[in-house]
Design a protein around this nucleic acid. Structure first.
Lengths: 395, 395
DNA sequence: AATACTTTGATTATCGAATAGACAAACTAA
DNA sequence: TTAGTTTGTCTATTCGATAATCAAAGTATT
């Protein structure tokens, strides 16, 4: 049992968080306005603000416009009080970003991967982290954490259990990175990272129920439910790529049949393409980029291939709508580049569905953070942790 | 914005809730033990307990066993301080229960429905509610609320938007019942009600992530995520009956194709049966009960029909596992009666799936509350509301 | 320029709730 | 008998939010 009990310290911590969040969102803002918006007493706000200033998390920026009385002192969030490192470890490349506490990318570094052998990848990963650490500006709190998004199954304790496309199994990345750099480390599934990134610093900023669909080689899904990442009992939720949508379909490596990602992923697109397109020089080296180039030149075959993918994506998205009744669906990862040729067949498929009044206010978007969303999301996890642990420490 | 701020009253209210819940779960229990278990100060517990006694929510039951010192005064939850009414309004019948504050069924009433014309059903519903109200024992707080579970789509504000099998549309049941009885009314989808009932007073008592699959004429699903009912943006979540599992399958009334409930519901079973079983007198009046009777007599055809349903149920359950990574899946509603003939084909289908380490600790259960789970769940909603609103009122 | 009114932010007195610790009552064990 | 333990109440203290007051710094009106 041992339920968390409540006391005045918690009240203070939570009110302080409210004040800080208000400043983050509505900056620049005065003490008086914070009191008005939150309902907190002016005195309470004053005292909490003065603590936040002492902690260097906010600062006064000088007087603002008067609204018929004494001019207010405007407060700003000090987004450079620390920096966060977020990394997207993908199959073909590693992308690392350094962000401020507001999720702005200060610096980015990328390395391509030619092989996925663990020791090799590890060295490249270390190199990127080191580079980012060394390039970070001086700040009060320094590097507050490192987050790495991985294309695989991660359990609740951050252990990477299986990454089929990297050919890795049971890797304790947290321990390995913490040993080397002595910083708080977060490991998450790439789709969860993307979802979190979109919620915190992307298109999902004002929605509470967001389904982020990462369409790359495979399909992974990150679930933001009631304003938080939903990870399931062991951390394995969101494997919608292995949702059966064709129960008499072909077998999948996962043991199921007719999995969604067999029909609607980048891999599916390329497989389809190989069967159809013959007037290509290296038929077996055809890529998503090639097909996009063809589509841009109005190649009918290519456009048709994309429309088929869009249609199959629509089938799964329909399921998502019926399952979650989300406020927003965000499609991310590399398939976003093909938006122009898939968006119509997706919406056509969705509009067939009549059960719900859902569509009246469903937002369907394509990621704008783009391939950055997982890296930014991983940086966001550390930022989140920094602020929630911070409050507990500073009395 | 207007975030809820924190203050001492909230601290007290929450600590009081902790004390009450501890007594509910661990009763009989002494003040000292509550302080030990929760971490609250002895004095705090004493004062909160004395308020709870004044409010008649708990009572002292006399001295308990000494453990080497002064004998403790044991405290008990006063489950008869009020009563709750929960009703399952189904297509063929209405089932109403009267429960105490601990979810125990004190009384039940059922009426069969021959037609679903709204005025007729309304009168029968009123009659059941009236009967239950009048039969309730005298108590401090009386009837604390009425909840009605309905086979249809209910929005966030409790409006029944669509009930295809009743042929109803846009019915404001809350208003209608509140007008008549002047009691707090809750309306919920039947699957959500069942899920809630199982969590509060059924098999799901100690799990936090439960997927309740109601297999009746159609299939509805109630989602308990992170310890609470997940309803989606508008309240329409859990329509997994209309999840496509066969994208080249037949059309469904919902506008989609190949919906799960076309293959794995009671309706599907009966449709299949009609095609196969011919040595029956009234072939077009065959029912689930008939088929169960046949299966009990080891009728091969019937058993095979159930195994097929189990297999198709397994396909959808596999999807559920991949989507949610739940701690527990509970199958409810009438198909539970066929457990013996479907359980094996379900588990066979599930075990094919190898992606997850999920199954290591997934509990797959058949409801024991049975057809009572939605009614009990509806009663549970009122109980929940009673306790959370109560605290705010009593200073 | 003088006056009245407003807005801002700090300060002070008060209140409410949790906590630590003291205490008496009621028990067990030796 | 005596010593130690457990229980539950009571008191003094602490902490944080609030209401109310106030001075400073502005605007609007005449």
């Amino acid at each position: 049992m041992k339920t968390k009990t409540w006391n005045q310290q918690i009240v203070k911590r939570e009110n302080k968080r409210i004040v800080l969040n208000t400043i983050k969102k509505k900056s620049p803002i005065s003490r008086a306005r914070i009191a008005n918006m939150t309902g907190l007493n002016k005195g309470t706000v004053s005292s909490l603000v003065s603590e936040l200033i002492d902690e260097d998390l906010i600062y006064e920026s000088g007087p603002g416009e008067s609204s018929g009385g004494r001019r207010p002192v405007m407060l700003l969030f000090n987004k450079t009080a620390g920096y966060s490192i977020g990394i997207n470890l993908d199959v073909n490349y590693i992308l690392g970003v350094l962000t401020d506490l507001d999720g702005n990318v200060i610096l980015e570094e990328a390395i391509t991967l030619n092989e996925t052998h663990f020791p090799v990848v590890k060295e490249k990963l270390f190199k990127i982290i080191e580079l980012l650490i060394n390039s970070a500006p001086q700040s009060t709190y320094g590097i507050i954490g490192v987050g790495v998004g991985v294309p695989g199954i991660v359990n609740n304790r951050g252990m990477l259990l299986l990454a089929p496309n990297l050919n890795w199994k049971s890797v304790d990345l947290i321990d390995i990175i913490e040993q080397k750099f002595d910083l708080p480390v977060t490991i998450e599934n790439e789709a969860n990272a993307g979802a979190f990134g979109e919620m915190k610093f992307g298109l999902g900023a004002d929605a509470n129920n967001i389904i982020y669909v990462s369409v790359g080689i495979g399909i992974g899904v990150g679930l933001i439910l009631n304003g938080g990442l939903f990870k399931g009992y062991n951390g394995f939720s969101g494997e919608l790529g292995h949702m059966t949508i064709k129960d008499d379909g072909e077998g999948c490596g996962c043991g199921n049949v007719g999995c969604w990602e067999l029909y609607a992923s980048e891999k599916a697109l390329i497989n389809n393409a190989k069967k159809v397109i013959v007037n290509q020089e290296n038929n077996d080296k055809i890529s998503l980029d090639d097909l996009i180039l063809l589509a841009k030149n109005e190649n009918k075959q290519s456009i048709k291939l994309f429309e088929k993918i869009g249609d199959d994506l629509g089938t799964g998205i329909n399921n998502i709508i019926n399952i979650f009744n989300p406020e927003q669906i965000i499609i991310g990862n590399r398939m976003v580049f093909a938006k122009d040729w898939i968006v119509e067949s997706i919406t056509n498929r969705i509009e067939n569905e009549r059960i719900g009044f859902q569509h009246q206010n469903l937002k369907l978007d394509f990621s704008e953070l783009n391939v950055y969303s997982p890296a930014i999301g991983m940086a966001a996890f550390s930022i989140e942790r920094f602020f929630s642990e911070f409050q507990s420490v500073h009395s």
